[in-house]
Nucleic acid binder design. Structure first.
Length: 738
DNA sequence: GAGCACTGC
C-alpha cells in the first residue's frame, strides 16, 4: 500500500496529442481498472472521474485535458520551457535539477513529445525507481495529454503493462524494466529519448542504465537523447560522467521548512524523539508530526512510550495518536497513517526510511529526525551482509526535512547538533558500492561486455567486488574459465531472479522437481511475506505455524513456505484467506504477489526449455493450466524433500554450516560461528520441551541469507544431511574445475 | 530471541 506522490504538473499550449487521439482508431485495451490518481496539490481540478477513465468519452477526456492545462501552465518548468528545450535540443545529454513541485517528471516528457516527436519517429522512455511512481505519473500525464492510458502515454512495470508497441510515444517504466528492454534490444532502437528520473537516488539499476547509455551514445546511438533528472547534490557527478553535459536548474514550489538543532548531542534517540514530539505537541498549532527512527525496534519502543504518556497530557493540548510505519508492518497497519484524525487530535507517525521516498503522508507539518538509518552492507571478502545503524547523509537529512513542507510551511527538529550536521557525508554510500553485484555483472556479460572491470561504471564498485562477483558466477556455472557467459548463464540472466536462485530453478528443471521448487523460490522473492508478530502474539503465532506446517517444522523454512503457500491456495473464499493470514501473521498481499511471480517464472522456464514454441508476447494463455496440474499432481505424491533441498544446495553451497556437538553451527567456507535466526522454524527456543527427538539435532543447515547484526545469523534455514553436502560440494567443485 | 528500503522481458 505504499503510496508515492508523483511530481504534480501539467503543461504547454499546443496539445497535438489531443488531435492525434481523435484521429487514431481506438484500440481494445483490456478494459482493466485504471488506478486512480490523486494529487491534493491540484486543488480546483475535480477530476474524480479518473478511475473510470476507460469508460468516459473522448470529449470528456479532452475537456479534462483543457482544464488541467491551466494548472500545468503555472508550473515553474512550464515558465522555463523555451530555455529548457533549447538546451535539450542542442545537447546529447542534459542534466536537469528539478526541485520537488517543479513539474519536471510530468511536463518535460510532454514538451519533448510535442517538439521532437513530431519530426522524428520513436518513443520517449522515462524511468522511475519505483512502480507506484511510474504508474501514477503515466496516469496523470495521460490525463493531461488528453489520451487514454496505454495509448499515446503508457507505462510498463513488472506484472503490469499499459503500453502499446507502436502507438505509445511516452512510456513511464521502472528502471528494471528498461534494463530488461536493453537485454532484448541492445540499441534501444524504439526510443529517441531516454529520461532517467530520480537519478540521485543512485539505485544499482539506474547506475547501470547510465553506463549503458553512455556506451550507446558513443557507438551505435549517437542520435539518442538522454536527460538525467537529479537533485542538486549529484548533478556534478552526472555532468562529469557525460563529458560535462550542461546542468539546468529549475526551482520547485515547496514551502519553507525551518530547521532546529540540539545544543548538545542526545544520548537516547528513542527518548529524545518522544520528548521532542510531546513538546511540539504542546507548543505548536495544527499539523501532524513525522518522526524518523532507524528501525522497527526503536519505533515500537517509541510508540509504546507515547501510548503510556498520552493519558497524562494536559487537556489543553491535542490528543496524540501514535502510528508506527515500517515495511514489515502488516499492510492494514501501514494504511492507518493515511487516516485523517478527527477532533482535537494530532497524528504522530514514527517511521523508518520508508517515509523518506516511498510513502508520503498527508498533513505532515513537523519532522523530527534522529539522523540515523539502518543500512545493509555486503562484505565481499566474507560473503555476508551486515546490517548497520549509521548517520544519514546531508542529502537524506534535507529530503527528510522536505517532508514537512509539502503542503505548507513546516518545521524540522534535528536531534543532533549543528556541528554534527556539518560532519555528515554529503551523500550516502551508493548501492553499487555496498551491495553484492553478481546480478549486475551477469547482466553486463549477457549484454556482451567482456571487460567488466573497465566498463563505463558511473561509480566503480571496486575491483575486489567485481572479482568476487565473477568468481561467484563462475562457481554457479554462469561463466566459463575465460569469463565468457555460458548457455546456463544466458538462461540465468533471463530469469528475474538473483543468480543463486536462477541456479536453483535450472537445477530443479533438470531434476524434475520444478513445480515444487518454483513455489518456494516465488515465496523467497516476495518481501515481507512472513511477517513478525507483535511481541504479545509471538508465541501463539509460532505455535500455530509449527502445528500447521508439520513438514516445515522438521525440514525448515523453505519447506514451510511451500506448506503455507499450498494451504493459502486451498482456501476457498477471500474471507477465509484473510482470516487465515491474520492467524498466521502472513501477508495476503504477499501471497498474491507469490502467485504472480510463480506465473511469470513458470512462463519463463517454459520458454527457456521450449525454444520451438513461438514466443508469446503477453505471457499467460494456455501455459498456466498445465503447470497447475503439474503442481497438483505433485501435491498428491509425497514430495521428494531431499531432492528439493538438494536443488537449493546447488545455488547455495557456500551458505551451509555444520552442526557442532554443543548444537551451535559453523559455516563451511570459513568455520565461523553462525546462529539460526529466531524467526526460523529451526530456531530452538530455550523452553522447548523438544518433541524434536524424532529428528534429532540438525547435522547441517542450508540458509538463503547470512546477515550479521549483533552476531552472525542464518535466515531461511533448512535442515540438510552431511552426505548431501559432500555429494553436491564435490560435484560443484568438479564443475568449476572443468 | 530478532526483522533498513527498493526492484525485474
Amino acid at each position: 500500500m505504499a503510496k508515492s506522490k508523483p511530481q504534480h504538473g501539467h503543461q504547454n499550449g499546443k496539445r497535438p496529442g489531443v488531435k492525434s487521439a481523435a484521429v487514431t482508431p481506438v484500440r481494445r485495451h483490456g478494459g482493466r481498472k485504471v488506478i486512480s490518481f490523486e494529487d491534493k496539490q491540484d486543488a480546483g481540478s475535480h477530476d474524480s472521474d479518473s478511475e473510470i477513465v476507460d469508460h468516459i468519452s473522448k470529449q470528456e477526456i479532452q475537456t479534462r485535458a483543457m482544464r488541467l492545462l491551466k494548472v500545468r501552465e503555472s508550473l515553474p518548468v512550464f515558465q522555463n520551457k523555451e530555455k529548457i528545450m533549447a538546451h535539450i535540443k542542442a545537447n546529447p545529454v542534459t542534466v536537469l535539477i528539478g526541485e520537488t513541485g517543479s513539474g519536471k517528471s510530468t511536463q518535460i516528457p510532454q514538451f519533448l513529445m510535442d517538439e521532437i516527436m513530431s519530426i522524428h519517429k520513436g518513443a520517449i522512455a522515462v524511468t522511475q525507481p519505483r512502480r507506484v511512481a511510474a504508474i501514477n505519473l503515466a496516469t496523470r500525464v495521460a490525463q493531461e495529454h488528453g489520451c487514454r492510458l496505454g495509448h499515446e502515454v503508457g507505462y510498463s512495470v513488472r506484472f503490469d503493462n499499459k503500453s502499446h508497441k507502436t502507438r505509445t510515444k511516452l512510456k513511464y517504466l521502472t528502471d528494471g524494466m528498461l534494463i530488461r528492454e536493453l537485454m532484448l534490444d541492445r540499441n534501444l532502437s524504439n526510443y529517441k529519448c531516454i529520461i532517467i528520473d530520480e537519478a540521485h537516488e543512485r539505485t544499482i539499476l539506474t547506475d547501470l542504465i547510465l553506463g549503458f547509455l553512455k556506451e550507446l551514445q558513443t557507438t551505435k546511438r549517437k542520435d539518442l537523447k538522454v536527460i538525467v533528472m537529479s537533485a542538486t547534490l549529484q548533478a556534478d557527478l552526472f555532468s562529469k560522467f557525460f563529458s560535462n553535459a550542461p546542468i539546468l536548474f529549475v526551482e520547485g514550489r515547496k514551502f519553507t521548512v525551518d530547521r532546529f538543532y540540539l545544543p548538545r548531542p542526545c544520548e537516547d534517540i528513542v527518548d529524545s524523539v518522544v520528548r521532542c514530539a510531546i513538546q511540539l505537541n504542546s507548543s505548536e498549532t495544527t499539523g501532524d508530526v513525522l518522526c524518523f527512527l532507524p528501525g522497527q525496534e526503536e519505533i515500537d519502543k517509541a510508540v509504546a512510550i507515547l501510548n503510556k504518556v498520552v493519558p497524562y497530557l494536559d487537556e489543553s493540548v491535542p490528543r496524540v495518536v501514535a502510528y508506527p510505519l515500517y515495511a514489515a508492518l502488516p499492510p492494514k497497519e501501514q494504511a492507518k497513517v493515511f487516516d485523517p484524525v478527527k477532533g482535537f487530535k494530532r497524528k504522530i507517525v514514527l517511521a523508518t526510511n520508508i517515509a523518506e521516498t516511498s510513502v508520503t503522508i498527508p498533513g505532515v507539518k513537523y519532522v523530527v529526525d534522529c539522523g540515523l538509518r539502518k543500512v545493509k552492507v555486503w562484505r565481499h571478502q566474507l560473503g555476508l551482509a551486515t546490517l548497520l545503524t549509521v548517520p544519514v547523509s546531508k542529502a537524506s537529512v534535507s529530503q527528510r526535512a522536505g517532508r514537512a513542507g509539502r503542503e505548507s510551511a513546516g518545521k524540522c527538529f534535528r536531534l543532533f547538533t549543528e556541528s554534527d550536521y556539518q560532519q555528515l557525508p554529503k551523500q550516502s554510500e551508493s548501492e553499487i558500492t555496498r551491495c553484492e553485484i553478481t546480478s549486475p555483472i551477469l547482466m553486463l556479460k549477457q549484454y556482451g561486455v567482456q571487460d567488466v572491470v573497465n566498463w563505463s561504471w558511473l561509480e566503480h564498485p571496486g575491483k575486489e567486488a567485481i572479482v568476487s562477483g565473477l568468481k561467484e558466477l563462475y562457481e554457479l556455472g554462469a561463466l566459463n574459465e575465460q569469463g565468457r557467459i555460458t548457455e546456463k548463464g544466458r538462461k540465468m540472466a533471463l530469469l528475474p531472479l538473483a543468480p543463486h536462485l536462477s541456479t536453483v530453478l535450472i537445477n530443479a528443471h533438470d531434476t524434475h522437481v520444478l513445480p515444487y521448487v518454483i513455489d518456494i523460490v516465488s515465496c523467497l522473492t516476495v518481501e515481507n511475506l512472513v511477517l513478525n508478530p507483535l511481541p504479545e502474539e509471538r508465541d501463539e503465532v509460532n505455535e500455530r505455524r509449527r502445528a500447521l506446517c508439520t513438514l516445515g517444522s522438521k525440514h525448515g523454512d523453505l519447506i514451510m513456505l511451500k506448506e503455507l503457500f499450498d494451504m493459502y491456495q486451498a482456501l476457498k473464499s477471500n474471507v477465509e484467506r484473510q482470516e487465515w493470514c491474520k492467524q498466521l501473521c502472513v501477508s495476503q498481499r504477499g501471497f498474491k504477489n507469490v502467485i504472480k511471480v510463480r506465473e511469470q517464472l513458470t512462463g519463463y522456464m517454459k520458454r527457456l526449455y521450449n525454444q520451438s514454441e513461438p514466443q508469446q508476447t503477453q505471457g499467460k494463455s494456455g501455459l498456466r493450466k498445465e503447470d497447475e496440474e503439474d503442481a497438483n499432481s505433485q501435491l498428491l505424491q509425497p514430495p521428494d524433500i531431499p531432492g528439493v533441498l538438494k536443488c537449493f544446495l546447488y545455488g547455495f553451497v557456500k551458505n551451509t554450516a555444520i552442526g557442532m556437538p554443543d548444537k551451535s553451527f559453523r559455516t563451511t567456507p570459513t568455520g565461523e560461528p553462525i546462529s539460526v535466526h529466531p524467526s526460523s522454524m529451526l530456531f530452538i527456543s530455550g523452553s522447548s520441551t523438544g518433541d524434536d527427538n524424532s529428528t534429532g539435532p540438525c547435522p547441517a543447515i542450508l540458509y538463503i541469507e547470512h546477515v550479521f547484526t549483533t552476531k552472525g545469523y542464518a535466515r531461511s534455514v533448512s535442515r540438510i544431511e552431511l552426505a548431501w553436502l559432500q555429494e553436491i560440494a564435490s560435484g560443484v567443485l568438479k564443475q568449476s574445475s572443468r
